[in-house]
Simulated scan of single mutants.
Amino acid sequence: MDIKQYVMCGCTNVPPAELDIPVKSQFIISVKVDGAKCMECGEEYYDMQSLKAIEELEKD
């Protein structure tokens, strides 16, 4: 994921990162996804495919 600038805080340091995303599931605590993380405010980004997969895990 290549983000040039986070528009909310103006930070241009938003490198790719492996993110540990919490999942509301009985059997899974969290999943690791490829994304990006703002080094100024900590905001995390990941793609829609990852979001849909996480939503499916939370349905069960």
Rank of each mutant, 00 (worst) to 15 (best):
M1Y: 11
M1S: 12
D2G: 15
D2N: 14
I3C: 02
I3E: 05
I3F: 10
I3V: 13
K4L: 08
K4R: 14
K4Y: 11
K4M: 06
Q5A: 07
Y6M: 01
Y6R: 10
V7W: 11
V7H: 11
V7I: 10
V7A: 09
M8Y: 10
M8A: 14
M8S: 10
C9F: 06
C9T: 09
G10N: 04
G10K: 04
C11F: 05
T12A: 00
T12N: 08
N13W: 06
V14C: 00
P15C: 01
A17I: 00
A17L: 00
L19D: 04
D20N: 14
V23N: 03
K24M: 04
S25V: 01
Q26P: 08
F27D: 15
F27P: 05
F27H: 14
I28A: 01
I28Y: 05
I28L: 09
I28M: 04
I29L: 10
S30G: 06
S30E: 11
S30M: 03
V31H: 02
K32H: 13
K32M: 01
V33L: 04
V33H: 02
V33W: 02
V33P: 02
D34C: 04
D34T: 09
D34S: 13
D34R: 11
G35H: 01
G35Q: 03
A36Q: 05
K37Q: 13
K37C: 02
C38G: 03
M39T: 14
M39L: 12
E40R: 15
E40C: 13
C41K: 09
G42C: 02
G42N: 11
G42R: 07
E43Q: 15
E44R: 12
E44P: 09
Y45A: 00
Y45M: 02
Y46K: 05
M48R: 12
Q49V: 12
S50C: 09
S50I: 00
S50K: 06
S50E: 10
L51P: 00
L51E: 13
A53D: 14
A53H: 08
A53T: 07
A53N: 12
A53E: 10
I54D: 03
E56F: 09
L57W: 06
L57M: 12
L57A: 05
E58M: 08
E58N: 06
K59R: 15
D60A: 13
D60T: 11
